[in-house]
């Protein structure tokens, strides 16, 4: 599997997640075991209208989506992996009017579990907004309907 295939799979997967699409989350990069997502700034994710700072909940959604989809970059076949847990540390408030990026990676895959971590940042990677670790359970490709797997893998590949 090459990065173009990974990018295609992850892009189609994120595209099927209604709420991710609703917030405008997009894939910017996908490689082996890693990817980057982008959350555009918008009025609807503001937590505090005075400071116009993004609500932590939207950052959580970005990071949950990043950790959940990076799994695709680490497995040869597409499997839906339910989230077991997510732990987020908020480093600083995100600057208004700027997108937030989430770089996620898979750092360990076992027969049953996939361990991921993710960093949300703005501008350069050094301006960290939040850090996160997420654990996912493997239930096998068969647990996902074939039609959905075909949709994600893109039968034309």
């Amino acid at each position: 599997m090459n990065d173009a295939i990974r990018f295609g799979r992850v892009g189609r997967f994120v595209g099927t997640l209604t709420h991710a699409t609703e917030l405008g989350i997009e894939v910017t990069d996908a490689t082996e075991n890693a990817l980057t997502l982008r959350l555009p700034y918008s009025e609807k994710i503001i937590g505090n209208p005075e400071s116009r700072v993004i609500h932590g909940g939207a950052i959580t959604t970005l990071m949950d989506t990043a950790c959940g989809s990076v799994v695709i970059c680490a497995l040869p076949e597409f499997e839906l992996c339910p989230t077991l847990d997510l732990r987020v540390d908020y480093m600083r408030a995100a600057e208004p009017d700027e997108p937030v990026y989430a770089h996620a990676e898979v750092y360990r895959v076992t027969r049953n579990i996939i361990f991921t971590r993710c960093e949300a940042y703005q501008g350069s990677r050094s301006r960290t907004v939040a850090n996160c670790v997420g654990t996912f359970m493997r239930i096998g490709p068969e647990a996902t309907p074939k039609s959905y797997r075909d949709l994600i893998t893109g039968e034309s590949e």
Binding site: T16, L17, T18, H19, A20, E22, G47, H55, G56, G57, A58, T60, T61, L62, M63, D64, T65, G68, L80, T83, L86, V88, T144, P145, Y148
Partner: peptide, 24 residues
């Protein structure tokens, strides 16, 4: 709410929405 869904095949709430809901 339709816009809060993630995985469309179950269909299920987006895990991030559950997190955001609990956080607010």
């Amino acid at each position: 709410k339709k816009e809060n869904l993630g995985n469309p095949i179950l269909p299920a709430l987006h895990g991030g929405v559950i997190g955001g809901f609990m956080e607010v």
